[in-house]
Design a binder for these strands. Structure first.
Length: 337
DNA sequence: AACTTTGCCAACCGCCACATT
DNA sequence: AAATGTGGCGGTTGGCAAAGT
């Protein structure tokens, strides 16, 4: 027989997550680490299925996620990677560590597709969109796609074998977690980090409760609640342009993120008056490997890098990016920029 | 001001590969 | 070896807000 079912569908809550649920989930993950999602609903009392918990964490609560407008560079990377990899959003997201596959997918569907279509219609009949279709992919593109696939396989293998660096033990690769990787979360190092971060969650919860006397809040009240979250983050001076996004949940995400990072940064003597994004950059190696790399490959460990990968990973070499875009996009995607 | 349309995005659904028993 | 569950992925949808009429 197989394993017991992860969750019975009866009594499972659906719809938007409330701040309370987020806090419960985050604090649980702080203590136990991500993974073993099956046990999350039972251990936390959340009326959510394990899948929903995992999704909420990976797409929203996981630290290191950048929200708000995509930069030109990110946009170019998405277009280029989509041309190379097709709609393999998880693979594309692995090259944009701060973005989730869901975000990239949404951005593609709502912005880029339209943008490219517009440009395509503007240029007589030629495929200018960079959207991959088997018939239209040039030999060079196939070679590059193959190269990328080989690279990803190599990377997964390296991580599975935990080559070289001891910190690998804490990395969860993009590939499916094996029993080994799951158990890696139970190492002493990780558990202490989570435990200490959980203190911070408790503080957050305390403050949050002070500011929100109401309990048993419904979804419709989330907006008000998130506002109180936001007032807490307001002092961080986090990018207001991104904050201008009027969605409610991003605010309390920022608050959670701030909370998580403020603890980490306090251990490294960093100022709390930095934005969430900046704080991400200040994470200690342990914390980044614990959180950010939980679902993303550790790009630092990859050897050797191909030209394409160097281009994709090297944020500083903007000039090189342009050259490579021009060089590699035979289908004329480069003309878009 | 009221109604309709459009855009955006968080979350759900269904499928698949792999792990577990 | 077979049966079943889990985690991960990509496609799609529902609901909200903004823009348009």
């Amino acid at each position: 027989m197989g394993r017991p079912p992860c969750c019975d569908k009866v009594g499972v809550k659906k719809g938007p997550w409330t701040p309370e649920e987020d806090i419960i989930l985050v604090s649980y993950i702080q203590e136990h680490g991500p993974g073993n999602w099956r046990s999350v609903p039972t251990n936390t009392g959340l009326l959510r299925c394990s899948k929903s918990c995992r999704l909420r964490w990976t797409n929203y609560l996981r630290p290191g996620i950048k929200r708000g407008n995509f930069t030109d560079h990110e946009e170019k990377m998405i277009i280029h990677l989509q041309a190379l990899l097709g709609n393999r959003w998880a693979a594309i997201a692995s090259y944009l560590p701060q973005r989730t596959d869901n975000d990239i997918k949404n951005y593609w569907n709502t912005h880029l597709k339209k943008k490219l279509r517009k440009l395509q219609t503007g240029v007589d009949g030629h495929n200018q969109d960079g959207i991959s279709s088997p018939q239209q992919i040039s030999k060079g593109q196939w070679e590059r796609r193959l190269q990328t696939d080989i690279h990803m396989a190599k990377q997964a293998l390296c991580e599975a074998l935990s080559l070289d660096k001891p910190s690998n033990n804490l990395n969860i690769s993009d590939t499916k977690p094996s029993s080994n990787t799951t158990s890696s979360f139970q190492t002493n190092q990780s558990s202490t980090t989570y435990a200490s971060s959980a203190e911070n969650i408790a503080k957050l919860l305390e403050n949050w409760m002070k500011k929100s006397p109401k309990s048993g809040q419904t979804n419709s009240e989330t907006t008000t609640q998130s506002t109180s979250f936001n007032t807490r983050v307001a002092t961080t001076g986090s990018n207001s342009s991104e904050g201008a996004q009027s969605s409610t949940t991003p605010d309390h995400h920022q608050a959670l993120e701030y909370s998580l990072f403020s603890f980490n940064s306090s251990t490294s003597d960093a100022s709390q008056s930095v934005s969430a994004d900046e704080t991400t950059a200040n994470l200690t190696p342990e914390s980044t490997s614990l959180f950010q790399d939980e679902s993303k490959p550790n790009l630092e460990q990859q050897v050797p890098l191909t030209l394409l990968e160097k281009w994709l990973l090297d944020d500083g070499a903007v000039q090189g990016h342009e050259e490579l875009i021009n060089m590699s996009l035979e289908d004329g995607t480069a003309g878009l920029f």
